[in-house]
Design a binder for these strands. Structure first.
Lengths: 211, 211
DNA sequence: CCTGATACCTACTCGTGAGTAAGACTACTG
DNA sequence: CAGTAGTCTTACTCACGAGTAGGTATCAGG
């Protein structure tokens, strides 16, 4: 497609955004190692030295992508959750927000989770950081429940399990895009709140207001 | 370490095993792209042309690794699960077997799950295949329960969610190796069988016989 | 002790991709 | 219409890794 000769002159801030978008796209499709700076620059519509001038090395660029997308996601969840509600309602709104974000930002989720979790070193750190923020959120929700699990450590583990289940269900969802976000969220909600023991007896959890 | 000049002469079958072990090790540590055939040959204690003579190209080698490890794991689970028992006991034994395998084969699990799931194309196929076998197993377990979830599709989804939770909890476990396998398994068992709704009320699930 | 055959090696080719040098175009500012 | 700051390019260097050519050591049977 290399049809254009010289790119339109644009202010740095705008170019940086374009480059970041292109980088997220390419990293999510090919993975960190298989992605090349040449391809990213081509997708971004500029030449390679611009990449290095603005965003530094390949590793720096990737880390920057991860941080940006992680922040976007945590903000989406934070604004979606409804505090001062019953624990189950809080959990429900959080799950809705999470799956809503993933559904509308599949590429972001890929580069954020699928790629970052497999590249060791500095990248995993960013991910771990975001995950632990999410875990603390859920753990707080659990300990706040009246008859909470005995130890604080126990709550943390359960929260980690739930967050892990969410991550992994989102991962699974990538391969089954036909399901709507609400359905996936409700499924996980039922699983973790009611448990199979209740579900096989026909006891299901319902959101407070049917839409 | 290149101290040895020429390797001890060994029959082909033995060398192939050594090479496979080395490949799983290196792939799990570095990932598919970052792993080099040079390093694999060095770890295996032979020279590069032997790799190509015995196991073909890098892609073939990787695919062979995945297939071997997936088979090993499914066999471990199949022999661990106790059929003709109550659903919860069956699930419990399956979880024990699964986490037992992962705990004793961390590198296998890494190359199998973490690496294969991120390299597109032929590799993901092997993984998907193994996962769907696991899902069918759990789905059968659920539909066999007396008052099972309404539709067959519903059971499949829940099974997928559970398998996903297991995968992801195992993933999480890689970063928290201090926890014993039984504890991790029990935690997931409680989460998915009782649900948070019961757990916050103090209702927990107990294995049939305390050891 | 010759003769395959099989295990094994050193030493290359060759493509690809990260990162850079050196300069050209545009636009504002005096 | 300089001069200078910021945008953007072509055209390299250089390292690393996949895959191979061509040869050497060791064993098994005659």
């Amino acid at each position: 497609m290399r049809t254009e000769g010289r790119a339109k002159r644009l202010p740095r801030a705008v170019r940086e955004r374009q480059i970041m978008d292109a980088a997220v796209d390419v990293f999510s499709r090919l993975g960190f190692h298989a992605a090349s700076m040449d391809e990213i620059s081509e997708v971004a519509g500029i030449s390679k030295p611009m990449l290095y001038a603005y965003l530094g090395s390949k590793e720096e660029l990737f880390a920057t992508c991860i941080r940006r997308e992680a922040t976007r996601m945590m903000e989406a969840i934070a604004t979606g959750v409804e505090p001062d509600q019953e624990p189950d309602v809080q959990l429900w709104s959080g799950l809705r927000a999470f799956f809503g974000f993933v559904g509308e930002n599949r590429t972001s989720w890929m580069v954020l989770h699928r790629q970052a979790s497999t590249q060791g070193g500095p990248f995993a750190v960013e991910l771990t950081d975001m995950r632990s923020r999410a875990v603390s959120l859920v753990a707080a929700l659990l300990t706040q429940s009246t008859k909470a699990p005995a130890t604080k450590l126990e709550a943390e583990s359960l929260a980690a399990a739930l967050v892990g289940a969410g991550e992994s269900l989102a991962e699974w969802w990538l391969d089954h895009p036909e399901e709507p976000a609400g359905v996936v969220a409700a499924r996980l909600m039922n699983l973790v709140w009611m448990g199979f023991g209740d579900l096989v007896d026909g006891n299901v959890w319902h959101p407070p207001s049917r839409r």
